[in-house]
């Protein structure tokens, strides 16, 4: 399952917590991908990439992002990114 949202937290002098609805991003990208489909097919043919393998591979990369967690702590601030 592709990630649906991400949480970005910045702790420091000005703490910030952002809840990023990635599902909206996918919904926004979907019509763009469909409109550019002929161009994408041309690129796949030109680069000799098997589209039937590329699409599931790309989907698996996106789905694999779920559970990614990044923490960076410095003396000034701490940054947390978590992808759900």
């Amino acid at each position: 399952m592709i990630p649906l949202f991400a949480i970005l937290e910045v702790h420091g002098r000005r703490p910030v917590t952002l809840w990023l609805p990635l599902f909206l991003l996918w919904l926004l990208l979907l019509p763009i991908v469909l409109v550019l489909l002929p161009f994408e097919l041309f690129v796949l043919l030109f680069a000799r990439i098997d589209g039937w393998r590329a699409l599931p591979a790309l989907w698996n990369v996106l789905a694999g992002l779920r559970g990614t967690h990044v923490e960076i702590s410095t003396p000034q601030r701490q940054i947390f990114i978590h992808v759900h």
């Binding site: 990439i49 098997d50 393998r53 590329a54 591979a57 790309l58 698996n60 990369v61 789905a63 694999g64 992002l65 779920r66 559970g67 990614t68 967690h69 990044v70 923490e71 960076i72 702590s73 410095t74 003396p75």
Partner: peptide, 21 residues
């Protein structure tokens, strides 16, 4: 300073499959 990164192994596996293309 500390950095702590957790990456799902599924992402690595999918990345390797994508690299084969």
């Amino acid at each position: 300073k500390t950095v702590n990164i957790r990456v799902p192994l599924q992402l690595l596996r999918a990345g390797v499959r994508l690299a084969s293309l």
